[in-house]
């Protein structure tokens, strides 16, 4: 596979300034997404998944500081861009499917008009063309065109999510960040929408980043997966391999905490303890207080990121035996 990265993130660090000191929400994260590839980011609540999503679009609250790193979108580093320059990239090159689909549509405007608004912000197309585009998009996400002129409150939860996806596709972005796109939906609708998103992504050869705490969702739709812990990417690799042979103890703990339908039955293991306080992360490897394999080395020094076959992991004591380089 030839390398054609749409998005390259290098050493991204983002802090929230609080009265008690900086909260290290994203801490030295690096990854890249190829064209047409889908990347999954998993982790517990508060591990910095959503912060990464917001950082990629540079939609940060006032107290957030982009400390270091680069976000290269289609060859352009967007970190130094001004707000006005960034605005042209948003939605046009990188769009987003929000966590709270229920509330991501403005209740006082018709859904069609909200999509047209996004189109008009990025191209001076005639109103008729914009309407035509909205019809195409509704068709793409299997929404009835009669709903173009309806208001968000007239939509069901699943329909709203489809509308949000249609909106994200409006400007044909290179990459879509989907932050917990289906968490609020029931399982059946969730499954439908995930399959459709995957089909659309393949048909349009787009890249996707799925952010979820649900290992099953990631397993279903992602080519590569990144596991996050305490604002850091602790393991990264092709989904099949990471799931089959987790290297980082945290990934292994996550894997054994969710049931497999086809695999042999075993009691689900719960991971003891709480995710660390990002104001004051533990010394050394942030996972060591909850890690069954922790050694003195883990407590004192931060482990390096090492390659294990096709996978990368940040750990002193990898739990799977893959040839390290």
């Amino acid at each position: 596979m030839t390398s054609d990265p749409v998005l390259v993130v290098e050493d991204l660090t983002m802090h929230y300034a609080t009265r008690a000191g900086p909260v290290r929400a994203v801490d030295g994260v690096s990854f890249s997404v190829e064209r047409g590839q889908s990347l999954g980011l998993v982790g517990e609540s508060g591990c910095g998944k959503s912060s990464i999503a917001m950082t990629l679009l540079k939609l940060l609250p006032d107290n957030a500081r982009l400390v270091s790193g680069s976000i290269t979108l289609n060859g352009v580093d967007v970190v130094p861009l001004s707000e006005n320059q960034m605005r042209e990239h948003r939605w046009d090159r990188i769009s987003m499917v929000f966590q709270a689909a229920m509330n991501s549509l403005d209740p006082v405007y018709r859904v069609g008009d909200q999509i047209i608004e996004a189109l008009e912000a990025h191209s001076a197309s005639a109103p008729r063309d914009a309407m035509e585009r909205v019809r195409e998009l509704f068709d793409l996400v299997s929404l009835d065109p009669s709903y173009i002129r309806r208001y968000p409150h007239e939509y069901s939860g699943g329909m709203r999510q489809r509308a949000i996806i249609a909106m994200a596709l409006a400007c044909e972005p290179d990459i879509i960040v989907a932050d917990e796109p289906t968490t609020a939906l029931d399982v059946i609708v969730q499954d439908h929408i995930l399959r459709e998103m995957q089909a659309i992504q393949r048909a349009l050869n787009m890249s996707m980043i799925y952010i979820s705490h649900d290992m099953a969702v990631i397993a279903e739709v992602c080519d590569v997966v990144g596991v996050m812990y305490a604002g850091k990417l602790v393991e990264f690799g092709p989904t099949a391999e990471v799931y089959a042979r987790p290297i980082h103890p945290y990934t292994k703990a996550l894997m054994s905490a969710f049931p497999s339908v086809r695999g042999e039955k075993h009691d689900l293991a719960t991971l003891p303890g709480e995710p660390p306080d990002l104001l004051d992360p533990p010394s050394g490897c942030a996972f060591h207080p909850r890690c069954a394999y922790a050694t003195d080395e883990c407590r004192t020094s931060i482990p390096p990121t090492a390659k294990h076959g096709d996978q990368w992991a940040t750990c002193w004591n990898p739990v799977a035996d893959v040839d390290s380089e």
Binding site: R87, S95, M96, N103, S104, D106, A118, H122
Partner: peptide
């Protein structure tokens, strides 16, 4: 509200976000 964040993400100008979405609601 989330739709304000969504409006920003759509690449609308701050003025459009303020007047069309926040002030309108």
């Amino acid at each position: 509200e989330d739709f304000v964040m969504a409006a920003r993400a759509k690449g609308l100008t701050e003025r459009a976000v303020r007047d069309k979405h926040v002030a309108r609601n």
